[in-house]
Nucleic acid binder design. Sequence first.
RNA 1: GCCGGGAUAGGGUAGCUUGGUUAUCCUAGGGGACUGUGGAUCCCUUGACUCGGGUUCAAAUCUCGGUCCCGGCCCCA
Length: 415
Amino acid sequence: MIQCPRGTRDFLPDEMEKRRFYENKLRHTAGTFGFREIETPIFEDAELFILRSGPNVLKELYAFKDKGDREIALRPEMTAPAIRMFVNNMSNEPKPIKIFYFGQCFRYERPQSGRYREFFQFGAELIGSATPETDAEVISMAASMIKALGLKEYKFRIGHIGVLRQRIADAGVPADRAAEVLQKLDKKLYDEARPIMADMGVTDEAMEDIFALTETVGGVEVLDRVPGDVGDYLRQVVGFLNAMGVVDVEIDLGVVRGLDYYTGMVFEAEAPSLGAEKQICGGGSYTLSELFGGEKVFSTGFAIGFDRILLAMEKEGQVYEPKGIDAYVLSVSEDMRLKAAEVVASLRAADISADVDIMGRKMAKALKYASSIKARYAIIVGAKEMEDGCVTLRDMSTGDQELVKVEDLPARILG
RNA sequence: GCCGGGAUAGGGUAGCUUGGUUAUCCUAGGGGACUGUGGAUCCCUUGACUCGGGUUCAAAUCUCGGUCCCGGCCCCA
């Protein structure tokens, strides 16, 4: 027997129906914010991802040479492809550009709960604008999406990477070693950060200032402790968020996020119920386009870990009931089978989801099957009723039956 | 990449410590009892020891390795 490759999954029809249902909620929400869907290739030139994330991503990339000796990688995320698309095809479109995407991504990592090698991301990018409203718009959409999915327990945190980067640069950390320091700060490993920073010539006083900054956590009032433009900027972002009804956000200047290209506001959402892999959403403002050969353009984007958020919803007890079909047609006797085929075809033509017995089952078994596929109605095609051009319409949940003319069936079922 | 726990019909399980008939039970699938009415009952039937090597007269059981899953670490764009 051949199993799925490590870290991949099969989605059976019930699961797939559920996933589509929630995907479409996300698509719908994006639509209400004026974002439009795009699709990019599942594989790209490996260089695209290395440019974005640095050569160290290579070890977690599904990368290979194709038959034309091209270095190819399965996409590990979709921001870089989206921005590549913008640079190649959309740079002259009126700004701002609002796009979103949903699709699978691939990372060569050890799978664990909420982490797969093939996983699904929903993301959006707002390109060409750099105002507080831009950031608020994006955060607000992310928040609306989590609400639309019905997740209850989650934490939303907004920070600003620019102020932290500036502060550590001013303190004497060289640009090429900033990532090292930020990584420790992200985990609040101050004791490990101290010797590293001391080695770079950062004074104790400057260090403690920086640590205090990353400990700036709480409501909007904590921004009073952040002097200058950044404090004002984030206050404006929060102001717009409040105006749009997003109130349950926390300021946390310790939100660091991994990559160099984030320039300003950054945010994350996590679901505490998930354990080690609890981050369900992450994003921020950045510039990437110039890396891919375009002009420098400010953007704000985010991505939702679709598998994780579904897992979190499941842990909260949210269940999705498969819809089933509208009608199941069965014939009472052999000589009615052609009539049954006509009936089911007429229902389908009327845009009703309808199935018909094709196994020659007896009525009892056919009804049992209709029940198991969650048919709302069984339509019993028998010789007696057919003399008057009728069939028996049986409501599968109540057991009520009535005689209905074949031509009246669609209206009766849809009504 | 590191540490630990696992894997028995489609799903859920018993058996493993102490090797020994035809591998347990529930559920599910197919057929029948029921000749024009489902979700009940009964009967028949389908279907599994993760894979490979080793020890042994004999391995689901002991042992080694691979694969996959789960918890955690690293990483997390």
